[in-house]
């Protein structure tokens, strides 16, 4: 049996979005029995990479709990959509990088977690080159 995994797909296969545009897509779990899943969290967020400690902020967040009576069928694709904010835009700097992503986290029994994320670009800020 193959390992459980999360697949995230954006509508229109878009990877670059403009502020105010709607980000829509779906996620699906593979090889994951329904009885295993306690809760699922979907976040649209940005995080920083680079020299500094990580900063992170969540733009949109959804949590589905099996305990609340929500049916969590991992084999069925689940849709999400959100209007993207004006800022911060994706950025590829020298010591600061800012990335946007959709992150899906499934909380399983026996304290296990299944995690998947797919990055996208917000805005079209070009990558920075070092000054001469």
């Amino acid at each position: 049996m193959s390992e459980p995994a999360v697949t995230i797909r954006f509508d229109g296969n878009g990877r670059t979005y403009r502020p105010g545009e709607t980000l829509a897509g779906e996620y699906r779990f593979e090889s994951l029995p329904a009885a295993e899943v306690k809760a699922v969290e979907v976040s649209v967020l940005w995080f920083t990479e680079g020299k500094g400690d990580e900063d992170m902020a969540v733009h949109a967040f959804w949590r589905l709990n099996a305990e609340d009576g929500t049916t969590l069928d991992p084999s069925q694709p689940q849709h999400f959509n959100t209007v993207l904010p004006n800022s911060p835009l994706s950025y590829e700097g020298l010591i600061v990088k800012l990335r946007w992503c959709v992150r899906v986290r499934a909380f399983l029994h026996r304290n296990k977690e299944l995690f998947g994320q797919k990055t996208f670009r917000l805005g079209d800020v070009p990558a920075v080159k070092a000054l001469p």
Partner: peptide, 14 residues
């Protein structure tokens, strides 16, 4: 244009 806007978070800033 285009250029990165000002940005401020706890540990990173532009």
């Amino acid at each position: 244009d285009p250029v990165m806007h000002s940005f401020r978070a706890n540990h990173n800033e532009i």
